[in-house]
Amino acid sequence: MKFKLFSAVVLGLASLVLATGCNNKKELWIYTSLYKEVIAEMEPLLKAAIPEAEIKWFQGGSENVAGKVNAELAGGKTKADLILTSDPFWYQELKQSGKLLAYDSAATKDVPSELKDPDHAFVTVRIPLMVMAYHSESLQPDQLPKSWKDLTLPRFNKKLSMGSPLESGTSFTAVALLSRLLGWDYFKDLRKQDLVAAGGNSSVITRIETREKILGVVLLENILKAQAKGSPVKAIYPEDGSIPVPSPIAIMKSTQNPEVAKKIVDWFFSEAAQRAIVKGGMYSPLDKIESPVNAKPWAEVKRQMLPWNSKILAELFSSRDQIKTQFSEIIAH
């Protein structure tokens, strides 16, 4: 019995060590919150474009990627060479603590300046969009909210949900920009509506689909994906402005292969890479790339979109903790 156990342990641990294996080729890690489908689409393309290096992906939610990198950095060293998540504020933080490698890529010359860090530490590579979503069989077209402000109308009481800004970076950006637009009284009104703020974006979609909460604040890409499966969830682009979540790409200063990393950044702005992103339901920062299928064209969206630039980013960044605390106090407790 004991011997059997012992050999099982030894075998198990040995296979663990073997499983990790070894490789001589230059190895680069991309830590990202991109969807698996998008990565699957990109992987062979990137491999063909940059054959000299072995590029590995670590995928997780924005917050988990940030958590992993932060913990690794706290210990002194991160394995990530490039990071690509949807929380712009985290990049501001990394930049200020000198963890990012500045790179002014020629491939990004068509990206509007408000979507670039002035010091070239990071640049927007995709733009997820926060909008409102509703259950199309439970709400008549004439009852729909038209703006963020409408969500405080009595008829939407107990019908609202959103992701938690503590758990999802995109929800945080939404809260930050909405509080800037409408003030904290808006959230106090939402609290009176019994707004549920929990989980990530797909939890919001699930709550709408099951009719637990038929109205939600959610990413457009989640709505498009649900629709492709035949879901009755539909999008509303609010009149007072959809919320952009400019999601950057950046190179870590600690990378051993800065030249390859720069080539990867360039590649992410190629048409092939940008198309893969758009296929995932996000907008491209490049005007020449078409908008996602079944989504409002970018040109129209831009006309009704909350403003974004590096000044706003810096301003919201400096009050980041305050925004989270304020939100927790009003909504969560």
């Binding site: 995928q59 997780g60 797909s202 939890s203 979609i205």
Partner: peptide, 25 residues
């Protein structure tokens, strides 16, 4: 697992979490 996972080391728990967060219910 969700914090310790890396490439090539997905576990059943992390895959379930991924599906819930990124795919659909």
């Amino acid at each position: 697992s969700v914090l310790l996972t890396g490439p090539g080391s997905a576990t059943l728990g992390t895959v379930l979490f991924q599906l819930q967060e990124y795919a659909d219910q």
